[in-house]
Design a binder for these strands. Structure first.
Lengths: 185, 185
DNA sequence: CTGATCATGTAATTCGTTACATGATTCC
DNA sequence: GGAATCATGTAACGAATTACATGATCAG
């Protein structure tokens, strides 16, 4: 039985201290979401499946007013997580970017229209960069209080990544703007 | 009826001169694949659907030794493509990156193991950058012979993109390597 | 004649999102 | 009491990959 990558998101979040499906989803939404998203529709069934596989153990505490089910990693789960973290396979990588796709086919557009699409794409990446920057305090706290540096490192990569794409758009806008102006003059 | 993004890949490739499903797939594999992939399992059914919608017209020529079906854009198809290219919605963007995901959870690994994972991730992005560079002559030819500049622009973005990620890994490897050496000394 | 490439398609499966259903608790 | 949030789950759907099936043509 091979686990999907999303299973490791769950195992990883449990290792970071999340206990319920709800908490996992909450953490994902302020961290891995930007390079690996997950929805309730995946998380709850996958938790059940991981329990059947013996990688997590779930317990419903009757004393708990919220009728939540708290999970924790089993030794086997911890092992599976570590095995994945150190496995030698080239990591899966997949991008779907509608903005770049449009750009690819944009030779029939006039420069002004192309610039407009670039602006739209840049706005989106700037928005994402902002969203990430708003998370920074949380990541900094985690690094300082718990000594967990990786989430912050990855967050910083995320910000640079969004800025890289926004910056490329910006440069391209200037280039096309100059070309358009030259033609117009 | 709203079209999926992959429908626009097909419309766009037909606009660029591809005629059959096979040719579309071939072009996708040396161009958009890196930011929007498509398989036969999508292309052929989608071509049929686009024909029913009147956006493409397909013809099977009996004189053709290969029993292929040649498609072309209808005016409605050209319009749909142009409407999408100029639409004001923020472009869809989705990334699934296992390497970054691993990194996020890597606080339990020792520096040497972390560096090893970074090397793996960097190797992958360097490989992709190379793959893209091998396509460049094709894109340059298209720009010079047909005046289509967008594919080349996008290819250059693709190369810079892969190099950006490889470069980040490289920097991080050095950082962790230095930290590990300091600890070891 | 044989392997590579051209060529079209379908079926099964996997992965993931969205929407829905339900209800408790906490804060104001 | 009412809104926000906590909390768990399922069902329907959609998007995409993979594997399979089939066969023609072309280059050596």
């Amino acid at each position: 039985v091979t686990l999907g990558k999303t299973a490791y998101v769950i195992l990883g979040m449990l290792a970071l201290g999340a206990r319920t499906g709800y908490e996992i989803k909450g953490l994902v939404d302020v961290s891995t979401r930007f390079f690996w998203a997950a929805s309730y529709g995946q998380i709850y069934p996958e938790l059940k499946r991981l329990e059947e596989l013996g990688l997590v153990r779930g317990e419903r505490d009757d004393a708990d007013a919220r009728r939540r089910k708290c999970y924790e990693l089993t030794p086997a789960g911890r092992e599976a997580l570590h095995a994945w973290l150190t496995s030698g396979e080239p990591p899966q990588f997949e991008l779907r970017h509608e903005g770049i796709l449009k750009l690819f086919f944009s030779d029939t557009l006039d420069p002004a229209e192309q610039v407009e699409q670039l602006r739209l794409m840049r706005a989106e990446h700037e928005r994402l960069a902002d969203e990430l920057r708003r998370i920074e305090p949380r990541a900094r706290a985690m690094a300082e209080e718990q000594g967990r540096r990786c989430p912050r490192r990855v967050l910083e990569l995320g910000i640079e990544y969004q800025e890289f794409l926004a910056g490329w758009c910006s440069r391209m806008e200037r280039q096309l703007g100059a070309a358009g102006a030259a033609r117009g003059a």
